[in-house]
Amino acid sequence: MATTEIRITGFGGQGVILCGYIIGKGASIFHDQHATLTQSFGPEARGSACSAQVVVSGDRILYPYVTAPHVMLAMSHDGYITHKDSMAKDGIILYEKDLVKLEKLGPKQKAFGVPATRIAEELGRKIVLNIVMLGFFAGATDVMPAESLRKAVESSVPEGTEELNLKAFDRGYEYAVKGSKTKAEAEVA
């Protein structure tokens, strides 16, 4: 069965690992897929470019690391630059519009941007930008049903913050679904 490799990258502290955790949980607990999350550890993962990798598949995942991600969620320019060259030739880059300056893509690659930080700020807490990104991911890809990922968000965020986080998720999702893809593609440099 198809295997999807996903890389989430950003600054340490932006919720990069949590993003990976929620994608993996959504796929394996709230959907019928296997999902393996690995992450970068060590000083490089604390404060500077940080990344989490998720492999999602219908079959048991035997090789745990990503090799050429099909999807990248980029929440920082550094992270994007560090990892862009390892992307699959037909990979999709989902990026935070105000933080990542997109460079030239491969002929078959696609990129869609979302002002996740601004949306998070409108909701009152900048910290939920990673969850806006997850909503955007749910709307822009077909890795799993949006509802599976939404349930994973609800069950993973700190108690008392579910409502805010679900709002953030829904706003990201709406941005992906309602925002015309042609328009998003037009933004590609």
Binding site: Y21, G24, S28, I29, H34, A35, T36, L37, T38, Q39, F41, I61, P64
Partner: peptide, 9 residues
Amino acid sequence: ECVGHMTEK
């Protein structure tokens, strides 16, 4: 480390 830090169901 790989198994220890790998997250799965």
